[in-house]
């Protein structure tokens, strides 16, 4: 492995050339939380790390399982590792100067307000519908100054064009087809989950670079 990691200034300059000076300044000052590091969360985190986000708060309590490899950004040599550690190892290789804050914990009604208080944008990336609703309601009720991006409906092999981003209020966005859950459509296929994750990541980038956070 190449241990000659480019200098911070060199990497930052490369991002400025790609994205623009103003864009990169806003990205480097922003903090996003990714709640759940499965098919959605692992892809969202990688997209945001590549976009040069300053701080990435990654949260999950689970370990990498063989059943995750069909759509989640982990490798066979990471089976059994905590997802927070496995993903942090990957993110550091992409963005060595990004401040990565891993939290190996289960988010609950009780700990959400404290754990997510320092993040500008919160990405919901859970698997279970009840958990998604819990996080969304909790953030909207208790962390009213945050931007929240959630996902609903990316299962099955329906058209990619059905997956969209819908703005519900000034600070709340929902990504997905809003219909096809694992109960309705069964399978979770990498390409379709990645599309939904990309919607969430791009919405975060748009909020950070075009909004007023």
């Amino acid at each position: 492995m190449n241990i000659n990691i480019p200098a911070k200034e060199e990497m930052y300059h490369a991002l400025e050339v790609r994205h623009g000076i103003d864009f990169q300044k806003k990205m480097s000052q922003a903090s996003a939380a990714v709640c759940g590091l499965g098919g959605l969360g692992s892809n969202i985190a990688i997209a945001l790390a590549r976009a040069g986000i300053g701080r990435l708060h990654i949260i999950d309590f689970d370990k990498v399982d063989i059943s995750n490899l069909n759509r989640q950004q982990y490798f066979t040599d990471q089976l059994g590792e905590f997802k927070t550690k496995a993903l942090a190892d990957t993110l550091i290789r992409i963005a060595p100067y990004c401040e990565i804050v891993p939290h190996c914990i289960k988010l609950t009604e009780e700990n959400i307000p404290e754990l997510l208080k320092d993040d500008d944008v919160i990405c919901e990336a859970f698997d279970l519908a009840e958990q998604k609703a819990m996080l969304v309601n909790c953030v909207l009720e208790k962390l009213t100054d945050k931007y929240l991006i959630a996902a609903s409906g990316m299962a099955g092999t329906g058209s990619a064009n059905l997956i969209k981003t819908r703005q519900i209020t000034k600070r709340f966005f929902i990504c997905g087809d809003e219909e096809n859950g694992t109960e309705e459509a069964g399978s979770l296929v990498s390409a379709r989950v990645m599309i939904c994750a990309a919607h969430e990541a791009l919405t975060a980038v748009r909020i950070i670079t075009e909004g007023n956070i």
Binding site: D127, K132, A150, A155, T182
Partner: peptide, 10 residues
């Protein structure tokens, strides 16, 4: 009223 419905998968 806006009702957002969550379905499983992620």
């Amino acid at each position: 009223v806006e009702i957002v419905r969550f379905v499983g998968g992620g």
